[in-house]
């Protein structure tokens, strides 16, 4: 049984179609990422999955049951870290967990045990009795993750878990999420950090304009669409047309974003050497990333 399966899933707000006829299935124990720019429909999709938004049409089963029909029972097995901080600011760190446990009807002794365990897991045990206002952004996000785990969920949903955090805080959260992955918890996340998706996700769905454009394992998608490597050419202002003219002779597959030319090829080493002979000195030859894939897709859809 899939952890989540959607068919023809739609959601509109008035005349605006936030999610258009989307289908996907998420397997138990996998980490599945929704990627895309703001307004792509990622958050709307996952808000439908955890029962915060009723759908406009289509099918949506979570743990084998229709989420809109069986909401409270399904929600008992889901943990949610939402994009906006909605921790309870009137309560201390520990009280946040204990109060949340009560909403799940977890008996107090068990709740206290789990709270202690989870505070250690997210490295907040020293802050247990602190007020929320004294916590940094990274700490609050960690507390939100601990709170989402209080009911031992089999499905954890994170809406942009590391947006706005510094690199150190982000890596700490990644390490924790990787530990959860090893425990076979199904994880669904949205992000617009390509690095995050590559780092955490077994599979990703790339969304734009309310639709899933591509779906698959990150590396596979990149290799299939871009190749293994990319040559970046940083062009001086005003010299782009000339650069494109010169590059066209040696590589047909390229994209332009701002002042940078991206060249895609199966044989990047050779390509890089040829490009070096051109006048442009700012050349980067590197491994292809999801970001390249994304820019390529975004460029294409924007051109339409």
């Amino acid at each position: 049984m899939d952890a989540v399966s959607a068919k023809g899933l739609r959601r509109s707000f008035g005349t605006f179609e936030a999610v258009k006829e989307t289908g996907f299935s998420i397997r138990p124990g996998e980490c599945y990422g929704f990627l895309g720019p703001n307004g792509a429909g990622k958050s709307t999709t996952i808000r439908m999955i955890h029962g915060m938004l009723p759908r406009s049409g289509g099918e949506l089963n979570v743990m084998g049951r229709d989420i809109d029909l069986d909401r409270p029972a399904i929600k008992a097995h889901i943990g949610v870290v939402s994009q906006e901080n909605n921790l309870d600011r009137d309560l201390t760190v520990r009280q946040n967990l204990l109060t949340y446990a009560r909403y799940f009807e977890i008996p107090p002794p068990e709740a206290r045990r789990r709270a202690a365990e989870l505070l250690a897991f997210v490295q907040l045990d020293a802050k247990a009795d602190a007020r929320l206002a004294t916590l940094s952004g990274g700490m609050q996000r960690r507390l939100a993750i601990a709170r989402a785990l209080i009911n031992n969920p089999s499905l954890l949903i994170l809406d942009e878990p590391t947006t706005g955090l510094d690199p150190q805080a982000r890596h700490l959260i990644w390490r924790r999420l990787n530990m959860l992955k090893r425990q076979r918890i199904t994880i669904i996340l949205t992000t617009h950090y390509m690095e995050e998706a590559e780092h955490l996700c077994d599979r990703v769905a790339i969304m734009n304009g309310g639709e899933i454009l591509l779906e698959g394992a990150p590396r596979e998608l990149i290799t299939r669409q871009i190749g293994e490597e990319v040559v970046e050419l940083h062009v001086e202002e005003g010299k782009m047309p000339a650069a494109i003219e010169a590059v066209r002779q040696i590589c047909e597959n390229y994209d332009v974003h701002g002042e940078t030319l991206y060249l895609y090829s199966r044989e990047c080493k050779k390509l890089a050497q040829e490009v070096m002979r051109l006048e442009h000195r700012m050349i980067v030859h590197r491994r292809a990333t999801l970001e390249d894939l994304f820019l390529k897709l975004a460029g294409r859809t924007l051109n339409e």
Partner: peptide
């Protein structure tokens, strides 16, 4: 302001 309801709605509470 505090979005407490939103947090609570992710639990079995409606």
């Amino acid at each position: 302001e505090q979005k407490v309801y939103e947090g609570v709605l992710a639990t079995p509470l409606e």
